[in-house]
Nucleic acid binder design. Structure first.
Length: 933
RNA sequence: GGGCGAAUAGCUCAGCUGGUUAGAGCGCCUGUCUUACACACAGGAUGUCGGGGGUUCGAAUCCCUCUUCGCCCACCA
């Protein structure tokens, strides 16, 4: 079905153009195109109040997916959450910017292109740096950003006119500016130390990029004979025997009495027959292994520190590829059969040799953490090298305070502790990568000048030295991808241009939505950059959502093959079904469980809901059609029927609850107060209340209640139509952020729709000002109760659905009149005729006591077996007695009446009276029917 | 090793500051093609709220402890 084209006069639905099954495939793409063409998602910076406009701004920055990525369910989840918030804010009347973009993803993209080259039998070295970068650029230009197109299919209402890219000229300028500023502040330095190195990607990695994985390894105990006294030896324990070729000492704890006498003496390094000293250092833990630790400064970060403290040499025996060799200061340390071996093969050989020479004392299984490259999973090798580092401690301080003082909140709150712990123990960030794909380190070296003039960080490319005029060369390294990502909230808005309109209009933004995995990689660093460069946090809320998992609780991933393709879901059930299912199934921070093997079941919730919504629209249009409808605003309160009053009250309640679930737009006073700090962002609660309203209140009750009125021409018909259209319009608004497509499709067909207007840019509903409770609304509750009660009784006694029965009502005159007026409604929905009596007739009967003491009596003569009814009454009476006894005991308890809040006690008293009445009724019936108990 | 979190219906989970008879979706059972919807309607069943102890008039909710899972951090070679 196409929503465009058809003039209003023809919008009266026929079964042909309005099938019972909603067909998202025929609807969604066209709607999205119209939104985009109409500029619904384009933010107008000039309207931001911050630069003199008429609206409060609202901003969300899309976590940029890798430029080579294709959409997976994690993206779907992440972007759906953002889209719900953004659409909500937009409807709330804020000038809303959702800024999309991609990340050039240094290692990841380089790996992809290298794989392509490998398929052609080439390496990056065959091409050379320049050509390789050209090729990668071409690859990105050709295939990159597919994911942004895919995001449109799930309805993402991002401002595509502002799409950013971390490697664009603008953002590259920001990267360089940030680097130079930090360099000038002395916060970036060149460090010579042991860092994480990936021997496959041939680059260094930050601590965060080297992921620890628990591994079952072996702890080898090796005996090192004491020099000059071959009868004695000490035993060291290591998991990496191959590094012993680089040993320069063994360390014991200075307080360890076992080895005190040996400190200052030497031991002989097996295999090499090298004399190395025994040193005392606190690093050695007497309780671990043998208490002796071998020191290999070039191949272990801790050993490096020990070596530095004791001025030890740093022989390098493993090269950049993870192959054994005398790389640096290691002359004679790598004997022939070992040289040229891969590190793991070398381990085997060395262990074998130690075994042969009797030096291997013991092998014991040992599980420990081994770090792996986060991009290619290769075991990371600690490597001594020169890298660029950012001093983090000064940057961390304001970012830590920002969270502690409530400028920023992190939800769910359990992550606050994790954040604080990381921030207080923060270590310097290795930002240089030995890659070709990325922002080149903006540092130039002059061969002629003396330090410190020979090293220059510059905003502009340099060719000659500004000091001496000789040619300069640029640093070969590129920057960590995250060094551009951490500037995202600023760089995408135009930083460092101070006069950037977007920056002034939208910084700081509002909510950052992402997965907890990148809390340190990205979120914490963005906060630090925000304070460092803008003097303020980049957002006030961090929403960390869960992960999509399969039925075995495994994270969905490409490598496990247990993923769900969101586009597949969109194609089968529609984007709305995908979105609704994800939102409804996701508590704050909780994981979403989906079954990749049974999409039908996984997405039934969303699909069914979209269909239900569709059918309500279908009902409305079949009844109201193209006829003119009275404006709801023109309907006087006195014209409203009880059902109208009731549904309007439910609508107000739904709006309030949805608003409360989504929460405050931002902190009321700029800083989160204790009571609002955890408020909102409960999107599942919002979805649930909205669903309840539409399904359980509008569809199940209101629609059923007004069917007769809609079919009966007259003034009341017009009232019913007006209320129905109004209520459904409001419901569509309420649901639009979650199910944008079907809601828009239906909204466009509402009788009063003005051509060219969109639900996406219409206003969010507001509850009516709360007034005194409408008595007629609560009267409708009683009618509902009666119908419910009748349905239960009918079902319990297996009365055939078609059979009309009669019930007697004992009620006060007020209620009697109300029920009399609603007779046809009750009789239609409960298939029961009501007769009014002063007291219950004799004979077997079912009865129910309702609000206001109204008693409903259904004679069962001819319908049931008396013995059975006696049993049933007895059981019911029994359980009532029990519950009543407990209730009475509670009310007799002086502690309860004294300490419980008054309204609780009052409620209990009322309940006691109701139950006592009910007990009396049941007893009378029982005695009348079955004799004395 | 340190820190944090979770355990509620067959499954996935709500249940916020302790207070009517603990809820939803999916699944299951019974009935129904009731003129919007069988992707529906009406009704129904199922819970010692992980075990134990404590605080309280009152505990799924607060405290302690145990068990089992999960997450984060950490240089124990």
């Amino acid at each position: 079905m196409s929503i465009s084209g058809a003039p209003q006069s023809e919008s009266l639905a026929t079964p042909d153009d309005f099938p019972a099954q909603y067909d998202p495939a025929a609807t969604e793409a066209a709607i999205y195109e119209r939104w985009e063409q109409a500029g619904c998602f384009t933010a107008d910076a000039s309207r931001s109040r911050r630069i003199g406009g008429d609206r409060d701004p609202y901003g969300i920055l899309m976590p940029p997916p890798n430029v080579t990525a294709i959409l997976h369910v994690g993206h779907g989840l992440n972007n759906t959450v953002q889209d719900v918030l953004v659409r909500w804010a937009r409807m709330k009347g804020l000038e809303t910017l959702w800024l999309p973009g991609t990340d050039h993803a240094g290692i990841a993209t380089q790996n992809v292109v290298e794989k392509q080259l490998a398929a052609e039998g080439l390496t990056r070295d065959d091409l050379g740096r320049e050509k390789f970068v050209e090729r990668t650029k071409a690859f990105v230009a050709e295939t990159g950003g597919v994911i942004l197109q895919q995001l449109r299919a799930i309805g993402a209402s991002a401002d595509w006119t502002r799409t950013a890219y971390t490697f664009s000229p603008e953002l590259s300028g920001a990267v360089r500016e940030a680097f130079v500023r930090l360099y000038e502040r002395g916060l970036i330095y060149r460090g010579h130390r042991v860092i994480h190195w990936c021997p496959r990607c041939l680059t260094s990695l930050s601590d965060e990029e080297a992921e620890p994985k628990e591994t079952a390894g072996t702890l080898y105990h090796i005996s090192y004979p004491v020099a000059d006294d071959p009868t004695r030896s000490i035993t060291v324990a290591t998991t990496r025997p191959e590094t012993m070729l680089g040993d320069v000492a063994v360390a014991v704890n200075p307080s360890d009495e076992r080895y005190m006498a040996l400190v200052g003496k030497h031991v002989v390094l097996p295999l090499l027959n090298l004399r190395i000293p025994v040193i005392a250092d606190d690093y050695a833990d007497p309780a671990f292994g043998t208490g002796v630790v071998k020191i290999t400064p070039a191949h272990d970060a801790n050993d490096f520190e020990v070596g530095r403290r004791h001025s030890l040499p740093t022989p390098v025996v493993i090269d950049e590829h993870g192959v054994m060799g005398e790389v640096e200061d290691a002359s004679g340390r790598v004997p022939d059969p070992i040289r040229g071996l891969d590190r793991f093969d070398a381990r085997q050989l060395i262990v074998a040799r130690l075994e042969d020479s009797g030096r291997l004392v013991k092998k014991e299984p040992h599980t420990h953490n081994v770090r792996h490259c986060y991009r290619c999973d290769t075991v990371v090798e600690p490597r001594l090298s020169d890298q660029w580092f950012v001093r983090m401690q000064t940057l961390a301080h304001p970012a830590l305070e920002g969270v502690r003082q409530g400028r920023i909140r992190i939800l769910p709150e359990k992550w606050v502790g994790v954040y604080e712990h990381w921030m207080t123990n923060i270590r310097d960030w290795n930002i240089s990568r030995q890659l070709w794909w990325g922002h080149r380190v903006p540092v130039w070296y002059c061969q002629t000048c003396e330090p410190p003039n020979n090293v220059m960080a510059s905003r502009e490319d340099l060719t000659v030295c500004p000091h001496c005029g000789s040619p300069v060369v640029q640093d070969d390294d590129v920057l960590d991808t995250w060094f551009s990502s951490w500037l995202w909230p600023m760089s995408t808005l135009g930083w460092p241009r101070d006069n950037s309109t977007d920056l002034r209009a939208f910084y700081p933004t509002d909510v950052l939505v992402t997965a907890p995995e990148i809390l340190f990689f990205w979120v914490a660093r963005m906060i630090m950059a925000g304070y460092a460069f803008m003097g303020d946090a980049p957002f006030h809320s961090v929403y960390l959502h869960g992960t999509a998992r399969d039925t075995q609780n495994r994270k969905m991933s490409k490598s496990l093959g247990n993923g769900i393709d969101p586009l597949d879901v969109v194609q089968r059930y529609g984007a709305d079904a995908l979105r609704y299912t994800l939102i409804a199934g996701m508590g704050l921070g909780a994981d979403v469980m989906l079954d990749p093997a049974d999409l039908d079941k996984s997405f039934a919730t969303g699909r069914n809901f979209a269909t239900k919504l569709w059918n309500i629209g279908r009902f409305l249009l079949m009844n109201v059609g193209g006829d003119s409808v009275r404006r709801f605003e023109d309907v006087a309160p006195s014209e409203l029927a009880r059902a109208d009053a009731w549904i309007l009250e439910r609508l107000d309640d739904a709006i309030r609850k949805c608003d409360r679930a989504i929460g405050p737009l931002r902190p009321a006073r700029g800083v989160w107060l204790e009571e609002e700090r955890v408020a909102g962002l409960r999107l599942n609660e919002y979805a649930e209340r909205a669903r309840q309203f539409v399904w359980n209140e509008v569809a199940d009750w209101y629609l059923e209640a007004i069917k007769t009125r809609l079919l009966t021409p007259g003034a009341d018909q017009q009232v019913a139509r007006a209320v129905l259209v109004h209520v459904f319009d409001q419901a569509l608004r309420l649901l639009h952020p979650i199910v944008p497509f079907v809601s828009e499709a239906l909204w466009q067909r509402l009788p009063a729709h003005v051509d060219g207007t969109f639900l996406a840019t219409s206003s969010w509903p507001a509850p009516r000002p709360s007034t005194v409770a409408d008595a007629r609304a609560s009267q409708f509750e009683l009618i509902k109760d009666i119908i419910d009660a009748m349905r239960r009784i009918r079902s319990e006694y297996a009365i055939p659905p078609g059979k009309m029965i009669e019930a007697f009502v004992v009620a006060t005159p007020d209620w009697r009149q109300i029920l009399d007026e609603e007779f046809s409604l009750i009789s239609r929905l409960a298939r029961t005729a009501l007769a009014f009596v002063e007291w219950a007739p004799a004979g077997p009967a079912a009865n129910v006591v309702l609000a206001g003491g109204t008693e409903l009596i259904v004679p069962l003569t001819g319908l049931i077996d008396v013995t059975k009814e006696c049993d049933r009454l007895k059981t019911e009476l029994g359980s009532l007695e029990k519950q009543l006894a407990a209730l009475e005991a509670r009310l007799d308890n002086p502690g309860f009446t004294a300490r419980a809040p008054a309204h609780v006690v009052e409620a209990e008293r009322i309940k006691r009276e109701e139950w006592r009445t009910r007990r009396g009724v049941l007893r009378t019936r029982y005695e009348g029917l079955c004799g004395k108990a």
